[in-house]
């Protein structure tokens, strides 16, 4: 009996120590976010992503790849354009990033642009073409960001109740895009 108590003590203390270790989630870098969003919002989203996502290596992580070189018309090495939107210092950006205030704000801005643009929103809504029920449409659109997961009936009800009917798809798309869970690869 004593042995069992000791064993329980040892295991629980180990568990406590493991639990006490703090860590931050590793969020996907700008290339990951770019790839997911381009997939959802279509080729028209490229311009928005190039302006509102790819230059922000500091917030999103993702160093540029010097092997992906595009030569400009200028002569000499200074005319070489890398996929580093802010020049060579981007080479040293982190591979990954953590949640941060600036990343959250930039995502808010990016998602607003993607959902406000008629072409990109329209492309993202293509997945609903063959879905008839409104609730199923909410579920299907949710799958664009979280393909492995389902919304419960009560969650869907909650969404319908909260969001403005007039701008439903725009707002729903923006909020899904802003949510952090899909940004963790």
């Amino acid at each position: 009996m004593i042995k069992i108590i000791i064993m329980i003590f040892i295991f629980s203390s180990s568990a406590i120590s493991a639990n006490s270790l703090m860590f931050q989630p590793r969020m996907g870098n700008k290339y990951y976010v770019n790839s997911v969003l381009e997939n959802i919002y279509g080729p028209e989203s490229k311009i928005i992503l190039q302006k509102a996502l790819l230059p922000y290596s500091d917030f999103f992580g993702g160093p540029c790849d010097p092997y992906e070189v595009v030569l400009s018309k200028k002569k000499g090495s200074s005319g070489t354009l890398y996929k580093c939107f802010n020049g060579m210092p981007d080479l040293r950006s982190h591979m990954i990033s953590q949640p941060s205030t600036l990343r959250t704000m930039q995502m808010k801005n990016l998602c607003q642009k993607l959902s406000q643009d008629q072409k990109t929103l329209k492309f993202s809504l293509k997945v609903l073409n063959n879905v008839k029920e409104f609730k199923d449409k909410i579920q299907s659109y949710y799958h664009s960001f979280y393909p492995w997961d389902n919304l419960s009936n009560s969650e869907i009800e909650n969404i319908i109740k909260t969001l403005n009917k007039k701008y439903f798809w725009k707002t729903y798309s923006e909020l899904l895009c802003q949510s952090e869970r899909w940004q963790i690869p």
């Binding site: 989630p25 979280y146 997961d149 909650n158 909260t162 909020l175 949510s179 869970r181």
Partner: peptide, 14 residues
């Protein structure tokens, strides 16, 4: 719409 984002983040440990 922070409540909806909370809902969409579901049971994430973060």
């Amino acid at each position: 719409y922070s409540e909806i984002i909370k809902l969409l983040n579901k049971n994430s440990s973060h």
